[in-house]
């Protein structure tokens, strides 16, 4: 009995060792691939330097392969990239090259770090993905794109981990320093606080907390259109 257990463990170890980055990515995609569309409620928390904005609530919509939209009332600062775009990128292994970058533990889960470089023309230059070895979910993604720079996405999973749908998504975005001439802002008598000059761009974070996912429901395409278009 003991020997049999050793054999099983050894085999599973060999299996883990043998899994290529492409296979790991394919596994992660397969989980999410079952989701053709979803609707959910979303609460958004902002922590943006030089922008004071209250938390907001809205609804999130997704439709395969890559349509994602958050609908809410009022002004909101949202990440420019569709956070599920990375699944569209890893869907077809002929469309990218992948390289394993070792492993790291996030929370209680060991993750494989894989860098994905798309072939041909793509806005994404490189995506570095931390995929949990147990859950097969991307726990962390660092996406470098031509238009939006570097965005770090950290995911926390709950009930819908089997579909790689996170309960929480935390985006860390590089921000440009906000500065408007006093005369244009008509901000007389305001003495800006002196801060240490740093060449580093300030970082802002936006957190999506999803609730009440409804999977594979009909989502009309009009939801994804810009208002008034």
């Amino acid at each position: 009995m003991k020997n049999a257990l050793y054999v099983i463990l050894l085999l599973s170890g060999i299996h883990l060792q043998a899994q290529t980055p492409n296979q790991t990515l394919h596994k992660a995609y397969q989980q999410f691939g079952k989701v053709k569309s979803f609707k959910s409620e979303v609460k958004i928390y902002f922590d943006l330097p030089s922008v004071s904005i209250e938390d907001m609530s809205g609804k999130a919509f997704y439709k395969a392969p890559s349509k994602f939209r958050i609908r809410l009332k009022g002004i909101a600062f949202l990440p420019k990239d569709n956070p599920f775009n990375v699944f569209a990128l890893i869907k077809d292994s002929t469309q990218y090259a992948s390289v394993g970058n070792g492993s790291e533990t996030i929370g209680a889960e060991t993750c494989k770090i894989i860098s994905v470089i798309p072939n041909g023309d793509s806005d994404i230059i490189m995506a570095k993905i931390w995929i949990g070895t147990t859950s097969n979910c991307p726990l962390k993604m660092q996406i470098t794109s031509r238009t939006n720079g570097v965005v770090l996405i950290e995911n926390t999973y709950g009930r819908f981990a089997k579909n790689s749908l996170p309960d929480k998504m935390r985006f860390t975005v590089d921000m440009n320093k906000f500065k408007v001439p006093k005369a244009m802002a008509v901000d007389i008598n305001n003495t800006p606080k002196k801060t240490a000059t740093s060449t580093e761009k300030p970082k802002g974070t936006i957190e999506f907390v999803f609730a009440n996912y409804t999977l594979n429901v009909v989502v009309d395409d009009s939801v994804f259109k810009e208002d008034g278009k």
Partner: peptide
């Protein structure tokens, strides 16, 4: 400058 980093909705 903020538009470069974010998609600003409802502005």
């Amino acid at each position: 400058s903020l538009n470069q980093s974010f998609q600003i909705e409802g502005m």
